[in-house]
């Protein structure tokens, strides 16, 4: 029996010199699912993320990847077992081109006993590998910049290169660390659309850590909320966002998450809908007497516009 959970985390505890950073955190991500993780600053999101990836070792609890206990595995072992990631502040290999990034990942995946193969000249990427990379580049819309040194890419493109690099490892789950950070609205929209399309094609799962509530609301179907190292809520995204606990801890008193629900149900169309979201925000801003403090998200709508979503959790 294969568990449907691609990632199953149970009872993670982590303390730093006496301060409890994570306390008994459990979460699961099913195959092909999109799950969000939010929480106030310092809630332990990054710590949890690092425990999942193997950068930190939890004091207690275990991490299972595809039913295999990987709690003791190093970062690269987990990566080989199908855990891909992107970085909040992009981490690219300097002095290389875009295609070279993907080729490195592809070579690493395909090669063992590299040393002797290299000496015999069989370590160079072959035509099949190059075309596999190019296929991913096309999918990401990076085909035209394949030969460009990564130093001259925009931040948005850099993030896509990270995604592409992770895709070459054929991940079962992709951990995205604040992918919207530093991107503007239209870039975030484009990234979400591209990611959504590739994900539905390839069927890997996504765990998204974000502050951009709008992106979380639209992109994910399920949500975990972390505060003071503990899970304070989880469940379907819309309902969770509307729960009072989440509002108090994270969104702020008058936050409105209405409208997002519709979008979330229909990910592939996210692009256009999100564009409209921006329009709404700007309209809202033009209206001087505003009371809500939510960011652009549905700012024009009165708080709690959708009855029935609040307080269900």
């Amino acid at each position: 029996m294969i568990s449907p959970d691609v990632l199953a985390v149970s009872g993670i505890k982590k303390t730093f010199s006496g301060i409890v950073a994570l306390d008994d955190v459990s979460l699961t991500v099913e195959t092909g699912e999109r799950v969000g993780l939010i929480g106030p600053n310092g809630a332990g999101k990054t710590t949890l993320f690092n425990c999942l990836l193997g950068i930190l070792r939890p004091d207690a609890g275990q991490v299972e990847l595809n039913g295999v206990d990987v709690t003791g595995h190093r970062v690269h072992k987990r990566a080989q077992a199908g855990m891909g990631r992107t970085f909040q502040r992009i981490e690219l290999f300097s002095d290389t081109t875009v295609r070279e990034h993907l080729l490195i990942a592809e070579r690493v995946r395909n090669n063992s006993g590299a040393f002797w193969k290299d000496l015999l000249g069989r370590g160079r990427p072959n035509a099949a590998e190059i075309s596999a990379c190019d296929a991913v580049l096309e999918m990401l819309g990076l085909g035209e910049v394949a030969e460009v040194p990564i130093e001259s890419l925009s931040l948005g493109q850099g993030r896509l290169v990270e995604v592409g690099r992770a895709l070459m490892t054929d991940p079962q789950i992709l951990l995205l660390d604040e992918p919207s950070s530093g991107l503007d609205r239209s870039e975030t929209n484009a990234l979400a659309a591209t990611l959504g399309a590739i994900q539905s094609e390839r069927g890997f799962a996504i765990l998204l850590v974000e502050h951009d509530v709008e992106l979380v609301a639209e992109f994910t179907t399920r949500l975990y909320v972390l505060d003071f190292g503990q899970l304070i809520a989880h469940g379907p995204t819309t309902e969770t966002l509307a729960s009072p606990a989440v509002r108090n801890a994270y969104l702020g008193a008058g936050a409105a998450v209405a409208g997002a629900a519709d979008d979330a149900a229909d990910p592939p169309k996210a692009d256009t809908k999100r564009g409209l979201g921006v329009a709404g925000a700007a309209d809202g801003a033009a209206d001087p007497p505003r009371t809500d403090t939510g960011r652009e998200l549905g700012a024009g709508d009165p708080p709690g516009a959708e009855p029935g979503t609040g307080g269900e959790l």
Binding site: A79, F87, F93, A105, R107, N111
Partner: peptide, 22 residues
């Protein structure tokens, strides 16, 4: 070859290199 590419990746960003299984 692969070794050179691997080392170039680590030189560029160790965390990123690890994240793709190096």
């Amino acid at each position: 070859g692969t070794i050179g590419r691997t080392l170039r990746a680590i030189r560029g960003s160790e965390v990123a290199a690890e994240s793709i299984g190096i």
